[in-house]
Design a binder for these strands. Structure first.
Lengths: 136, 136
DNA sequence: ATATAAGGTTCCCGGAACTGGAAGTTCAAG
DNA sequence: CTTGAACTTCCAGTTCCGGGAACCTTATAT
């Protein structure tokens, strides 16, 4: 499969797909004409990358997640540890996203859509007190 | 409140906070000594930015979301339209994130943690067929 | 058979969103 | 009063791509 089709099926621009190859996230075959040739498994990886990137994971985190998926030679304990930590992060994100959704729903419901801007909502949009330490 | 405290409470590095000021996402007061002085509402905005950025929204999308939150002078119909569109996006993300979580859970449960790497899971980690068109 | 357009290739530059480091100022502690 | 932590500005570098040039290959239409 050519890069165009892979792009369609993964939801990633061709540019991005080539970039991911550059940085070693996948290595598709090459056809005789020099064109990249994507297998179903390649597309799988790409779709996974599309998703996890759009959900706020860094490329390096995606690389880790992919290694869970693909690296059969790894120590299971390792895999488990990484997976569990990622799982916790995902669950935290789910909570935050749900809160954001609720706040927005509230806004949409209570905002009439006419010219009276009665939307004193979202005041708790930043969520309950649960600040984590700064990354730097 | 100084930038250090604001950083603690928002979960954002001071560097990032200054950057957000540069690009006009907030404008904290300045104390007599030239130090930035963050109000509770500033910290609110920062925390919101931390969250929505970590959930995969671009800075421009965050700006939009913040405008929903803060700009009372806006046409309600506008607000409503933006909010609804963001809401749909958030719901899509929630679904994807939940699928990712399920896949990882499955991995964690089925991977024994010993040296038998029996984790032939995640084969559907990229999710059901629902590719969207490429962005470029 | 041949133009022509559509889709592929590499390469390089630019932009978004930070991040690190230097050089200097201010503040709180010993 | 000095020492160190926390603040300031400014500039440079990194990550994760996106645009566009220059070129090649494949499918279509005449």
């Amino acid at each position: 499969m050519n890069i165009g089709a892979a792009s369609q099926q993964s939801g990633l621009p061709a540019k991005t797909i080539r970039y991911y190859e550059d940085i070693g996230l996948l290595t598709p075959d090459r056809a005789g004409n020099g064109y990249r040739d994507y297998s179903a498994s390649d597309v799988h990886r790409l779709r996974f990358l599309q998703r996890s990137r759009s959900l706020g994971f860094s490329v390096e985190e995606c690389r880790q997640l992919l290694s869970l998926y693909g690296d059969r030679s790894r120590e299971s304990a390792d895999v488990r540890a990484i997976a569990k930590s990622k799982l916790a992060e995902i669950e935290r994100k789910l909570t935050e996203l749900a809160e954001l959704r609720d706040a927005l729903r509230h806004l949409v419901r209570n905002c009439h859509g006419d010219n009276r801007p009665e939307c004193p909502i979202l005041d708790d949009l930043a969520g309950r007190d649960n600040a984590r330490p700064a990354r730097a």
